[in-house]
Design a protein around this nucleic acid. Sequence first.
DNA 1: AAGGTTACATACTCAGTGGTATGTTCGCAA
DNA 2: TTGCGAACATACCACTGAGTATGTAACCTT
Lengths: 215, 215
Amino acid sequence: MEANTSSLLSLTGNEARDEIVRAAAEVFMEFGFAATSIDAVAERLGATKGRIYHYYGSKAELYFDVQIAAMEKLIREIEPIAKGSGNAAERLEAMALRHTTILMEDLSMQKVAVRGLERELLGAVAARHAKTLRSIIRLRDDYEQIFAEVIDDGIRDGLFVDLPPRLATKPFFGALNWLTVWYVPRRLQTVEDIAEIARTLTGCAMRGILKGAHP
Amino acid sequence: MEANTSSLLSLTGNEARDEIVRAAAEVFMEFGFAATSIDAVAERLGATKGRIYHYYGSKAELYFDVQIAAMEKLIREIEPIAKGSGNAAERLEAMALRHTTILMEDLSMQKVAVRGLERELLGAVAARHAKTLRSIIRLRDDYEQIFAEVIDDGIRDGLFVDLPPRLATKPFFGALNWLTVWYVPRRLQTVEDIAEIARTLTGCAMRGILKGAHP
DNA sequence: AAGGTTACATACTCAGTGGTATGTTCGCAA
DNA sequence: TTGCGAACATACCACTGAGTATGTAACCTT
């Protein structure tokens, strides 16, 4: 047993855990945290509980790892864009486009992550996992902050409507993230279909905060 | 025992059921369907299971009634606005404003409803309650349709961007409904605070679909 | 090759929960 | 006043599911 504890970053290098996380993400997405049994995850793996509990100490820990993996992927992909070139509007649009695309490509994990820490956890398992919980909330906050800063840039440049950045982030994320509620991947869905949806959502979100001269 | 079955419309006139529904909404919102025990709902009522099972045949039935009550309230309030006077943009804005306000005023019920039928139900309890499930999905669809039609009007009048109405509805609802994810009612929150948030969200959502001349 | 460790599977415990069966109280009609 | 049903409370059962304890086969090390 290597350093599995506090696995906030060290998923890499452990293929077995990765496979479990992917399977767990699917089942969690389908049924939510409470309604998902470890046995169900094991079955999807073609294995039994033993395999899961060998790598994870509890159901909550497994759930957390799904969240962490999802958030890290988002941050890893979007942060470079935020720090890249272009004005605030161009960068924000590129970020939104990529963000939306990831949501659809990686739907199972992202759906779990985006929905946020369902309240059931905050109340129930909170005490025992308070530390991990904080890390996750921190990750979510960091991610939102990446957007908030670009938005702040845009506001100061007079590109975006004049709102508190943290507040402006909400409807912006909303327009994008809401897709985790309604989007159902269709068979025969091409890459272009996904791109089309991403462009549409990004378009609405961008117009929502762009300071344009409306008639 | 009067005609409790198929209570899709007849909540009115039954104060006892109403009280149960309100309590249930709070607990369901806090913990989700699966993690909410009937005992927990009963405790919030200062009663025991007996009281609940006297009026409801199952936990699912109770959950459904929360959804129905929430959706009916929305439809009841927004439909008149949709059929009212003003051009599409004016009506849509008024609808969004009222919609958002209801979400905040009635957060517990609406949060449960907006989150949608968590997948856990579709798979698990589906068979036994297939009929009720269809009614609820129908209600949600009807509600979205109210918006879709106004949006369609706006598109044909050249007010809104040219998108399939059903698709345009998604980011629009997203910008508004996302508040059920992040909004936490604060003590000392005045009516004006709520109105302020409603205006901000509505503003972003409207700009998102308005065909404006962006610089 | 012997001992140890990893990576699981199997078998079991036990608390929590949905639902039911059975009281019990109270209002009301005859 | 009596009886009866509505409106609950109490007691109980059956089952699910998280977590654990124990077995075991393969592999790795020396």
